[in-house]
Simulated assay, not measured.
Amino acid sequence: MSKQVELVVYGAEVICASCVNLPSSKEQYDWLQAAISRKYGDDYVTYKYVDIFNPPNEQKYQQFAEQVVEDDMIYPVVLVEDEIVGEGNPRLKTVYQALENNGLTPIS
């Protein structure tokens, strides 16, 4: 594997109304990062957390953050290589499958 795979989590400090009993977006981001690192190592995945109400000054992230807000998406919204793989309560199995579809293999 030589390609970096980007995983982006869009969320907010405030828990969305539909996610009252779920962890915050930031907590889910940290949890995903830890779970993925255990299974695939740290070398080939780059992680980015984007606050939907205060996105970084990069058009790509600003546009999708606006879309999350405007479309009332349930956050966190998880993207692997710009493909939505989870919304609200991301499923680890779905995220793993997306990573493997982008060339990652589990470490032994």
Rank of each mutant, 00 (worst) to 15 (best):
Ser2Leu: 07
Ser2Arg: 05
Glu6Ile: 01
Tyr10Cys: 01
Gly11Tyr: 08
Gly11Ser: 06
Gly11Trp: 05
Glu13Leu: 04
Val14Phe: 02
Cys16Gln: 00
Ala17Glu: 07
Ser18Arg: 09
Cys19Phe: 02
Val20Trp: 02
Val20Asn: 06
Val20Asp: 06
Val20Gly: 05
Ser24Asn: 07
Glu27Arg: 09
Gln28Ile: 13
Tyr29Pro: 00
Gln33Tyr: 01
Ile36Pro: 07
Tyr49Gly: 11
Asp51Leu: 10
Asp51Pro: 07
Phe53His: 15
Phe53Thr: 03
Phe53Gly: 11
Asn54Ser: 15
Asn54Val: 08
Pro55Ala: 14
Asn57Trp: 00
Glu58Arg: 10
Glu58Ile: 13
Gln59Ser: 13
Gln59Ile: 06
Gln59Glu: 14
Lys60Thr: 14
Gln62Asn: 11
Glu66Asp: 15
Gln67Arg: 13
Val69Phe: 04
Glu70Met: 13
Asp72Gly: 12
Ile74Gly: 11
Ile74Trp: 08
Tyr75Gln: 07
Pro76Ala: 10
Pro76Val: 11
Val77Thr: 08
Val77Ile: 13
Leu79Phe: 08
Glu83His: 07
Ile84Thr: 15
Ile84Arg: 13
Val85His: 12
Val85Met: 12
Gly86Ala: 04
Gly86Pro: 07
Glu87Leu: 03
Glu87Pro: 05
Leu92Met: 06
Leu92Phe: 08
Thr94Val: 15
Thr94Asp: 15
Thr94His: 14
Tyr96Ser: 08
Gln97Gly: 06
Glu100Asp: 08
Asn101Asp: 15
Asn102Glu: 13
Gly103His: 02
Thr105Trp: 00
Pro106Ala: 10
Pro106Asn: 01
Ile107Ser: 10
Ile107Phe: 00
Ser108Tyr: 01
